[in-house]
């Protein structure tokens, strides 16, 4: 009864179980890679769609990201989580899609942004607690998509990686080739801009939107 059962431990440890799947996929087990796809495809697609704001581009990104991941599993060292590694590939693919869109004049992630510039807050109103509960899943998705769509790609990409994908500031900076200060500055602007857009929807009924007294 006191004997240890490493195989049981491994099976119940999600990280070890995932590494085992990656190993099997690396050795040509397509079904194992299929399990990784099923686990992460929705998140990759959501991220790609939020960055590119386009369904077709998101599908292309999804396919390219998984194909490249499958093709380069040997280069996955297991030092980061598989999803972080996959995210890096998907983000690069998403940014390439954005850069290919010549009509979009705001796609540069390298755009010079004054990090010392004061953040702007124009509208202030109290929200209900859990305002999203007033809406269906589909409605809330549309509200959030519309708000994020209005952000410049440089802001929304940082926001998605930090606040939706929950990567660290350092991981985000490294992934996007930005400084830590640039990530922090862009994240603050993204958060405040989204807050303003959502305030127009989520403010408590009867609550006035006021200007910010500095």
């Amino acid at each position: 009864m006191d004997h240890e059962h490493p195989e049981v431990t491994s099976a119940t440890d999600p990280a070890a179980a995932e590494l085992a799947l990656v190993d099997r996929a690396r050795n040509g087990d397509v079904a194992a890679f299929g399990e990784l796809i099923s686990k992460y495809e929705r998140r990759v697609y959501r991220m790609a769609r939020q960055i590119t704001q386009n369904d077709e581009d998101a599908e292309d990104v999804l396919q390219e990201a998984f194909l490249k991941a499958f093709g380069h599993l040997d280069s996955f060292q297991g030092q980061s989580k598989f999803y972080t590694w996959l995210t890096r590939i998907a983000v690069n693919e998403s940014l390439m899609k954005l850069r290919k869109r010549k009509s979009d004049r705001t796609v540069s992630l390298d755009e010079n942004i004054e990090t010392d510039e004061e953040p702007i807050v124009r509208e202030i109103a109290v929200w209900d607690d859990n305002p999203e509960l007033r809406y269906s899943q589909e409605e809330i998705r549309q509200i959030l998509d519309k708000a994020i769509e209005g952000l410049k790609p440089i802001f929304r990409t940082v926001f998605i990686l930090r606040d939706v994908e929950e990567l660290s500031t350092e991981e985000t900076a490294e992934m996007l080739g930005l400084s830590i200060a640039a990530v922090k500055s862009r994240l603050l602007r993204a958060r405040l801009q989204l807050r303003e857009k959502l305030t127009r929807v989520f403010k408590r009924k009867g609550e006035q939107i006021l200007g910010y007294a500095k």
């Binding site: 959501r46 929950e166 958060r191």
Partner: peptide, 24 residues
């Protein structure tokens, strides 16, 4: 004012974090 900014920014982040990924 700053309390509201802080509270609503926190809720902004929460609502995005809580958004479920759509089925493909």
């Amino acid at each position: 004012n700053c309390w509201v900014i802080c509270d609503t920014t926190k809720k902004t982040i929460q609502v995005y974090k809580g958004m479920e990924a759509q089925n493909l």
